[in-house]
């Protein structure tokens, strides 16, 4: 079974040289730490920055320089600032190659729910609905089951949707899965996890074909 860092490391392997990538809050933010050295990747922050760098050194924080999670950050050489309309313009026009975000539920047709739990205080969707509606490639980082042990990979999302038919790939603590027109296709198992365990943790349609390899995490 993978921990959060393991999920981030596995997702980092999906990033290709030359990609512009938008990382959501939580596990997706950790992915930045595991992008292979020497690879040319530009991180987009939807509050108006291309070329996001690591957190600043103590004492070097700048109130004018934050990411979409409102954390203080830095820029890397070649970065650019822009306004919010342009930021979502580049997202909508599919200039951003990959979006990585978290989810509460994903259905086997690629619907995603990650912004609202009925009965709880609703904080808002932020940029998530814009991102999922437009991104050409969306990878979801999530837990396979909730705290009660119930599957979050469902035939149909129960929570209010963020977007429809948009998720392409899911990386959980148990598995890597593609979302296909026929349902979730199991691609890899987490170290020490059996196909049976993944089957039991998945409520949506699950396609298992041939031997499912164990993922390789450095």
């Amino acid at each position: 079974m993978l921990d959060k860092v393991g999920i981030a490391k596995r997702i980092a392997k999906e990033i290709k040289d030359g990609y512009y990538v938008n990382l959501g809050i939580g596990i997706p933010t950790l992915v930045a730490n595991y992008i292979p050295k020497g690879m040319n990747v530009v991180l987009q922050s939807e509050n108006g920055l291309l070329g996001m760098g690591p957190f600043p050194f103590e004492g070097e924080e700048d109130a004018d320089l934050i990411n979409a999670g409102k954390q203080t950050i830095t820029t890397v050489p070649g970065s650019a600032f822009f306004d919010s309309a342009m930021s979502f313009g580049m997202i909508r026009s599919r200039k951003v190659d990959l979006t990585i975000l978290g989810a509460m539920e994903v259905s086997d047709n690629g619907d995603i729910a990650n912004w609202k739990i009925p009965g709880k205080m609703v904080k808002g969707m932020g940029g998530a609905m814009d991102l999922v509606a437009s991104a050409k490639n969306i990878i979801v980082a999530m837990q396979h089951v909730n705290k009660a042990g119930e599957s979050k990979l469902l035939p149909k999302c129960e929570l209010p949707l963020t977007g429809v038919k948009c998720v392409k790939k899911i990386v959980t603590e148990l598995a890597v899965l593609d979302v296909t027109p026929q349902g979730f296709r199991l691609l890899e198992r987490a170290p020490g996890v059996s196909v049976e365990e993944i089957k039991n943790a998945t409520l949506g349609r699950l396609i298992i074909e041939g031997d499912i390899p164990e993922m390789i995490i450095d």
């Binding site: 690591p54 600043p56 050194f57 103590e58 924080e61 934050i66 999670g69 950050i73």
Partner: peptide, 12 residues
């Protein structure tokens, strides 16, 4: 004041 909402830093 330019208050910072989430001060996140790394050690030198």
């Amino acid at each position: 004041e330019k208050r910072i909402e989430q001060r996140t830093v790394r050690k030198k």
